[in-house]
Design a protein around this nucleic acid. Structure first.
Lengths: 193, 193
DNA sequence: AAAAATATGTCAGCATTATTGACGTATTTT
DNA sequence: AAAATACGTCAATAATGCTGACATATTTTT
């Protein structure tokens, strides 16, 4: 058995690494019923979309994770740490690192929850608000240009499409966020869920 | 000077960390002329979009980087290492690690370039083709559903929008890719820039 | 009132994916 | 023959995620 195996390796297969499949030379394509164009456009689009703020963030020694935290704290001032974790879908240990830096640099402040003093409500400072705006500006400009390029009436379609790309369970969170043109926010009580 | 500083810290400011900006309690919103809705929808959509293949990849001990390499090698069989680097916009050291794993696991094979034997043309094996399809399937399904949800005629608009979101310099590369439904490869001269 | 649960914070270690810098080897171009 | 190019590899570092363990304050349950 061992002999057979080594003969096979030594003579027929040479070594494990020479047992290779043949190269396939035809491109994969939509003929397989799969929308590769949109798939890779999504990759390229998102990469460039995030590159705008990345450059600004680098000046502050921040990364993409800081951006996300800053963004949602600005969108929902007063959200608690637990709520933020639920939106970002990361662990508290991952959040802690970036949140601490944002607090230490006075972009975000914490207030004890009024009903439950264990909670920490997160608010942007003026500095944090300004940075959030500065980060969003080039992204918004890119979107505006892209909408212009692809026809002005598309914004609603794009928004519907993107929302439909999100897992259904998570769409509820999106609707919590304020000033969505498609819906008004009567009272911002993030008291349950 | 030192005394003044410590008095200031000790009595007025207590320590550096207590000099905090006031919490801003109003949500940032579209009133600033910035399209926060689309910005965060893009984040949520992309996160869920990539989560589908991530689960499959985990079974192979692969990550997102492997997916990207496998995708583009399947889309453009025979591309060289340099071309792949140019598409992915990463360093060769970053590519090396994942490419090596894909070659060792017989998902990708290398052939010396026919004209220039220093080059390595990359091809998928049948195994690599199958995995690329398996990874793309749930993503394509998600897109199809989202397009259905947001109206059937939107596909062209979505494609235009996403393409317009990509940096202009990079759109040439996108047009190289095969079987784009909106354009035939015949009149596709990406020869300028 | 004591015990349990919850919200948050923190320490330590690890994985993935990216980076920069340096250097080696084969091949092609000058 | 020398220089440039394409690719591979080693080493160190950074950002962002993860798990596990444990501490502290506060609230809820018993």
């Amino acid at each position: 058995m061992l002999t057979y195996f080594s003969i096979k390796l030594g003579t027929i297969m040479a070594d494990r690494k020479t047992v290779r499949g043949a190269p396939i030379k035809t491109p994969i394509g939509e003929q397989d019923g799969i929308d590769f164009s949109i798939i890779e456009l999504f990759f390229f689009a998102y990469r460039d979309f995030t590159s705008d703020p990345d450059e600004i963030l680098a000046d502050y020694g921040f990364g993409r994770a800081h951006h996300r935290v800053l963004h949602f704290v600005n969108r929902r001032p007063g959200l608690t740490v637990a709520e933020l974790l639920d939106v970002l879908k990361i662990t508290k240990q991952s959040l802690a690192r970036v949140l601490k830096q944002l607090i230490d640099t006075d972009h975000i402040v914490q207030l004890p929850g009024p009903r439950d003093r264990r909670q920490r409500e997160l608010y942007p400072t003026e500095k944090g608000r300004a940075l959030a705006l500065a980060l969003a500006r080039p992204q918004s400009r890119r979107i505006r240009t892209a909408l212009g390029d692809s026809g002005l009436g598309n914004r609603a379609s794009i928004e519907l499409f993107l929302k439909a790309m999100v897992n259904p369970e998570l769409r509820a969170q999106i609707d919590i966020l304020p000033a969505n043109p498609t819906q008004k926010l009567s009272g911002n009580d993030h008291g349950e869920h």
